[in-house]
């Protein structure tokens, strides 16, 4: 674990180093860099409307039940807000995979086993354990369209 933490510290330091250079504002969280949008606000006519099958899909993927028309409206609003990103012109811009791209290969560790934590330590914050198994709600239970419509 120490290795993991030391690695994370290393990266934090590295980022900080970068942020002291003259490109600092692009890496600092204190400066909000607004994307240059050709038309910053989508037109009001671009109202986002979600159909039932999309809602069902999103519910299934996120395991969140949208429940009411109100929460659906909030989601539609959020999508409209985020859709601004499509207005950014990214022609001839190479995607940036990572801020350390081209500069830093991911560090590798040797294939050595280290178990600094006992199994008890690892499980101590878990409420539901039965015969060493963590117990979770039933997984992958599909939300059927019919039951959704009833709601």
């Amino acid at each position: 674990m120490n290795r993991l933490y030391s690695c994370s510290r290393h990266f934090l330091n590295k980022t900080r180093l970068l942020s002291t250079s003259n490109t600092s504002r692009y890496f600092s969280s204190k400066h909000n860099v607004e994307p240059k949008a050709e038309s910053p606000e989508p037109k009001s006519s671009d109202k986002v409307v979600l159909d039932d099958s999309t809602v069902t899909l999103l519910e299934r993927l996120s395991l969140v039940n949208f429940g009411s028309e109100k929460s659906k409206a909030i989601l539609e609003d959020a999508i409209k807000f985020a859709d601004k990103i499509h207005n950014v012109n990214v022609d001839n811009v190479k995607p940036l995979i990572n801020v350390l791209d081209k500069e830093w290969s991911t560090p590798c560790r040797d294939d050595v086993v280290q178990m600094e934590n006992s199994t008890q330590d690892v499980k101590m914050n878990t409420k539901h354990v039965e015969e060493d198994y963590f117990v979770a709600p039933p997984s992958n239970v599909p939300l059927h369209q019919e039951t959704n419509k009833k709601k």
Binding site: M1, L4, C7, S8, F11, C108, D110, N117, V122
Partner: peptide
């Protein structure tokens, strides 16, 4: 298992060479 395998807060992946 260790804290990373459980995704406890603060853990980060380090690749096995």
């Amino acid at each position: 298992i260790n804290p990373f395998d459980l995704a406890l807060p603060g853990v980060l992946p380090v690749l096995n060479k």
